[in-house]
Simulated scan of single mutants.
Amino acid sequence: MSAERLVHILDEVPGLEGLDELTMVVALDGFLDAGSSAALAAQHLSAISDGGSVVATFDVDQFHDYRARRPAVTFQRDHYESYDAPRLVVRLLRDAGDDPYLLLHGPEPDNRWEAFCRAVREVVERLGVTRVVSVGSVPMAVPHTRPIAVTHHANDVRLISGVNPWQGELRVPSSAQALLEIRLGEWGRDALGFVAHIPHYLAQLDYPRASVILLEHVERSGRLTLDLTDLRAAADDRESEIARYLSANEEVGDIVASLERQYDSFAQAEESGSSLLAEDQPIPTGEEIGQQFEQFLAGLEDDGKDTGDEPEEDR
């Protein structure tokens, strides 16, 4: 099946004529989206541009596993209505300086990744994209009270703008975004991205603080100017919720304190160059973390329902 049958692109897109540079941000929710950081980033970008305009639509039936990720549908008394169909689209948005850029967002394809990459290539070539910037997040054994680490990656080393938290080779599960970056490099197209490290005990909650960090990197690498005011406010609200919960739950606070000690020892060892491993610092066991943070998540969810602080998703 050709790329043209997997994605429909508008024949004419006003506002893109004569551009020397055009950034496309890729934010796919699903596997590489701990704390819903990519999804929240995409929602924010769309919101500050009043939704922009859809310039390309992928045939989501070709990529989505409906049994693995079942869309919601509303049952109203005696009939079904309001089916939330998954959408994988490219929007034309404008930044705070009125400069255009594109946003590819929606559910990460569950299958046919190679076909998806070819379809994205069609979008890149037809619309004149010069730079693809992806965002994502993974759960890590880190405390939320320390700076969020970000892994930088690119298909050309000249695009890398920061130092990664570790060096060397890692074998990790792949994603559609990872394959897209590789394939774009093979096709001579620049692609780079950022992966935020989310505290594993917050991975199931919306965590806008990580979304802010990711979009700050998108600003610099994509040469955009983004208004992050509302997203920062949501991040502050979430941090306040977490702080209130920890102050009232000493056992959970002890677990976070253990992660803080481990994190600080690791950072100090790296700075001194003596060792990458923390010495003589106890780290919580998997069983301890599982038991305590099961309560942690339940407490925060209940807190959000009571206070109305839980950010709403606009999928």
Rank of each mutant, 00 (worst) to 15 (best):
residue 315 R to M: 06
residue 237 D to W: 05
residue 81 E to Q: 11
residue 119 A to I: 02
residue 301 E to F: 06
residue 93 L to Q: 01
residue 29 D to M: 02
residue 123 V to F: 10
residue 80 Y to F: 13
residue 87 R to K: 12
residue 295 Q to L: 10
residue 116 F to C: 02
residue 261 R to H: 10
residue 122 E to T: 11
residue 67 R to T: 13
residue 90 V to N: 02
residue 100 P to M: 12
residue 192 L to A: 13
residue 55 V to M: 10
residue 302 D to G: 01
residue 260 E to Q: 13
residue 198 I to Q: 00
residue 255 I to D: 03
residue 259 L to M: 12
residue 167 Q to A: 11
residue 133 V to D: 09
residue 188 G to T: 05
residue 96 A to R: 14
residue 63 F to G: 00
residue 73 V to Y: 02
residue 177 Q to A: 13
residue 313 E to R: 13
residue 315 R to I: 13
residue 32 L to S: 01
residue 274 S to V: 15
residue 117 C to T: 10
residue 85 A to F: 03
residue 230 D to V: 10
residue 170 L to K: 15
residue 228 L to V: 09
residue 280 D to V: 13
residue 227 D to H: 06
residue 83 Y to K: 05
residue 153 H to D: 13
residue 91 R to H: 11
residue 204 Q to M: 05
residue 123 V to C: 14
residue 264 D to R: 15
residue 93 L to E: 01
residue 160 I to E: 02
residue 272 S to E: 15
residue 18 G to P: 09
residue 290 G to M: 14
residue 34 A to L: 07
residue 8 H to N: 00
residue 252 V to F: 11
residue 76 Q to A: 04
residue 176 A to Y: 06
residue 131 R to P: 12
residue 211 S to L: 03
residue 187 W to A: 01
residue 183 R to W: 10
residue 173 P to E: 10
residue 19 L to S: 04
residue 1 M to D: 07
residue 223 R to Y: 03
residue 71 P to T: 05
residue 135 V to A: 09
residue 153 H to I: 05
residue 4 E to M: 12
residue 290 G to F: 15
residue 294 E to D: 04
residue 84 D to A: 11
residue 284 P to G: 04
residue 54 V to D: 02
residue 11 D to N: 15
residue 21 E to F: 13
residue 288 E to M: 15
residue 242 I to N: 04
residue 80 Y to P: 06
residue 166 W to G: 10
residue 89 V to E: 04
residue 181 E to Y: 00
residue 19 L to C: 04
residue 249 N to Y: 08
residue 220 R to L: 14
residue 193 G to K: 04
residue 178 A to S: 14
residue 101 Y to K: 02
residue 14 P to A: 10
residue 295 Q to I: 01
residue 139 P to T: 09
residue 110 D to Q: 09
residue 258 S to D: 15
residue 99 D to E: 15
residue 56 A to H: 04
residue 289 I to A: 14
residue 148 I to Y: 00
residue 55 V to Y: 07
residue 51 G to F: 09
residue 121 R to H: 07
residue 130 T to S: 10
residue 228 L to D: 02
residue 146 R to W: 08
residue 245 Y to G: 01
residue 35 G to C: 09
residue 3 A to T: 07
residue 192 L to D: 04
residue 17 E to G: 04
residue 184 L to I: 02
residue 37 S to L: 11
residue 46 S to T: 10
residue 192 L to S: 07
residue 197 H to D: 05
residue 114 E to R: 06
residue 303 D to W: 09
residue 238 R to M: 13
residue 191 A to H: 06
residue 136 G to Y: 09
residue 231 L to E: 00
residue 257 A to N: 03
residue 218 V to I: 14
residue 27 A to H: 08
residue 29 D to E: 03
residue 74 T to Q: 08
residue 173 P to H: 13
residue 71 P to M: 07
